[in-house]
Design a binder for these strands. Sequence first.
DNA 1: GTTCTGACA
DNA 2: TGTCAGGA
Length: 270
Amino acid sequence: MKEEITISELARIMNVSVHQIRYFEEKEILHPAYTDDNSYRMYCMDQVYELAQILLLRRLGVSVPSIKQSLASFTEGQYEELLHHSLLETTAQMEKLQKHQQFISKVLQEQQNSTGQTEQYQVKQRKVVFLTRWIEMEPHTTLHARLLAEQAAHPPNLFETDIHYLYDSSNAITICLEAEQPNDFVLSAGDYLSSHFLLEHENELDQWIERFHEHAAAHSYVLAEPLILIEKSYLSLFSQGTLHYEILKRIESKDEAREGAQDDYHADYN
DNA sequence: GTTCTGACA
DNA sequence: TGTCAGGA
């Protein structure tokens, strides 16, 4: 029995694939101790330690070409720098994952909020929301792929975004996305009349908007412009083929109604 | 049965 | 990075 081991045995004790070991050889960072007569690669303890170091560096996020460099020439200080860099990268990844986590929670929350609420109206307290203008649409036009491609300079991830449609009094629609900072529009905090509903086709939308206004009138709500329609495309996951919307309008306080405050959502900083 | 190289998704 | 073919 030889002291040296074959590639599959090395792979097994180091928990990596045979393919990966060959790949490291191709990239010239790990060579076998020798090649046997049958052209099998044979490895000894030296390679076990070398492979351990390579795998450690990979775990720290160091690329294979950089590992090659580092094995050849790195000083203690340079390895330290490598670790600092790796720490920063890991932190950034964790922040990304936390955002994923928040998004998943949000979808679940929204799903729970929306079930059973269809066609029901409620008065909701909302916090201030900042919106950034994304696409402008003429009255009575529909959003089609061409418009999207031409107007959307910096497209968001449509599958995870609340898309806000702001209807002004002339029925022109501004499609907006949520922003972190005060931006093109500000939806002020306050009470909003809200209704969730599901659509099979977009052409049912106008009926819903009409019904929303009828409901508001029947209950004598005084509502402030604009009409806000929020599309939650990610909720379609739970009901294939349907579109989820929330329709909103801010309820004016009596003072505002007396002053006839209008258009107070505009915040054009241009 | 195991490993090799090379190609491919 | 995994998988497959075809040969040793």
